[in-house]
C-alpha cells in the first residue's frame, strides 16, 4: 500500500512541479514569480516519495490485494459512508434536508446493526434536532427540497 501511495504522491508531485512552469513570471526582475513556491513543493514531493518507492521495491513490498472476505466488513462500511456524503451532495437539493438526512442516518444505523426501532427513532430525531439547531437557531439555509415552501 505504501508503494502505491508513494507512486501517487510522486506523480502528483511531478504534476505540481510541471504545471507550475505554465505560471507567469515577473519579467525584468530577478525575484521568482508565482510558480516558484509550488515548484519547490512539487519537487520536494517527488524526491521524498521516490525514497519510499525505492525502499519498498528493495524490500519487495509489493502491494497485496486483500481477499474480499477479509475486508468485507470494513469495505462495505467505508463505502457506505462515502456514498452517504455523495447522496447528500446530489440528492438533498431535491428531497430536502429532512428527508435526505433521515434516509442516510436510518440506513447507516441499520447497516451498523443498531436495532431497527432505535434506528428510526434516533435517526429521525437527530435529523429534526440538527435541522432546528442549524436552520432555525443558526439560520443556515439548509436545502428545503420540493415539498418545502
Amino acid at each position: 500500500m505504501e508503494l502505491i501511495i508513494s507512486l501517487i504522491i510522486f506523480l502528483s508531485g511531478g504534476f505540481i512541479f510541471g504545471y507550475a512552469f505554465t505560471f507567469p513570471r515577473m519579467e525584468g526582475t530577478n525575484y521568482p514569480g508565482p510558480g516558484f513556491f509550488p515548484k519547490v513543493v512539487g519537487f520536494g514531493l517527488m524526491v521524498l516519495s521516490f525514497v519510499f518507492i525505492v525502499k519498498n521495491i528493495k524490500k519487495r513490498a509489493w502491494p497485496r490485494v486483500p481477499r474480499f472476505k477479509e475486508i468485507k466488513y470494513e469495505l462495505i462500511n467505508v463505502l457506505a459512508i462515502i456514498a452517504s456524503v455523495l447522496f447528500y451532495i446530489y440528492v438533498s437539493e431535491y428531497l430536502g434536508f429532512l428527508v435526505t438526512v433521515s434516509i442516510i442516518l436510518v440506513s447507516l444505523m441499520l447497516l451498523l446493526k443498531v436495532p431497527w426501532k432505535k434506528s428510526f427513532i434516533l435517526g429521525i430525531g437527530a435529523t429534526v434536532i440538527t435541522y432546528l439547531l442549524f436552520n432555525r437557531l443558526l439560520s443556515v439555509p439548509l436545502p428545503g427540497g420540493f415539498f418545502m415552501w
Binding site: I81, V101, V114, K118, A126, T127, L142
Partner: peptide, 16 residues
Amino acid sequence: NVLIPIILLMCIVGSY
C-alpha cells in the same frame, strides 16, 4: 454505532 452516523451528519452540516 448510533453516534457515528450522527457525527457524519455533523461533518456534512458543519462543512456546509
